[in-house]
């Protein structure tokens, strides 16, 4: 069940933030930064882009929290703010990327053979591979998947945040995993073909 206004421990922080308390913002970032990053990653798909947009979201939240009519809805407000910022960032970067990609490609050298990776490098490579696969999940399923796996949110919490029914969240999570499994299997197949 969603928390009511009296039960929500973040309400005090939100009130402090509205009154201009910068420390309240820090506390909110510590408590909720991870799922905000999850929402951004759900739209943007790359960690680098998430880092670029994340600060803008929190700064905008700080500057505009006085406009919040119903403070009990702050999570949904922050969610929409993060999502819109991410969508704007995608629009901005699409044109810029197109312009630069062609020129950049000219200077990309083929990487030299790498020395044998150590264990950390292997783990890092696995993470990169997993992230790349998550990135290829369709956005509509990726958002729920990231919120579930990054923050451990329940179906109800995800549903409350993004404004859909819990059953819809369940369906999206099933489909996200189906996509992910298919992508990882295809990658493995490509790898084995490449080494033959």
């Amino acid at each position: 069940m969603p928390l009511t206004r009296n039960e929500d421990p973040d309400q005090v922080l939100i009130q402090s933030l509205v009154e201009g308390d910068g420390e309240a913002l820090m506390a909110l970032v510590r408590r909720h930064g991870r799922w905000v990053r999850g929402v951004l990653f759900g739209v943007l798909g790359t960690v680098e882009d998430v880092e670029d947009v994340e600060q803008q979201v929190w700064l905008a939240f700080w500057q505009r929290c006085g406009e919040l009519d119903d403070t009990s809805r702050w999570r949904n407000w922050l969610y929409r703010m993060a999502r819109n910022a991410a969508i704007d960032a995608v629009r901005r970067s699409t044109r810029r990327r197109k312009l630069w990609q062609g020129l950049k490609d000219l200077f990309v050298q083929h990487p030299a053979p790498q020395p044998r990776p150590d264990r950390n490098a292997i783990v890092q490579e696995e993470h990169q591979r997993a992230l790349a696969a998550v990135r290829r999940i369709p956005e509509i399923y990726r958002e729920a998947f990231v919120l579930r796996h990054l923050e451990g949110m329940s179906y109800q919490q995800i549903a409350d945040l993004i404004g859909v029914a819990p059953e819809t969240v369940g369906t999206r999570l099933v489909r996200a995993r189906r996509h992910l499994l298919r992508i990882l299997k295809a990658d493995r197949k490509d790898d084995s073909l490449g080494t033959e």
């Binding site: 998947f145 796996h149 995993r177």
Partner: peptide, 13 residues
């Protein structure tokens, strides 16, 4: 794949 994805997401984000 849940384990891999969760570890990667938590490390990155």
């Amino acid at each position: 794949i849940d384990g891999q994805a969760a570890a990667a997401l938590r490390t990155a984000l």
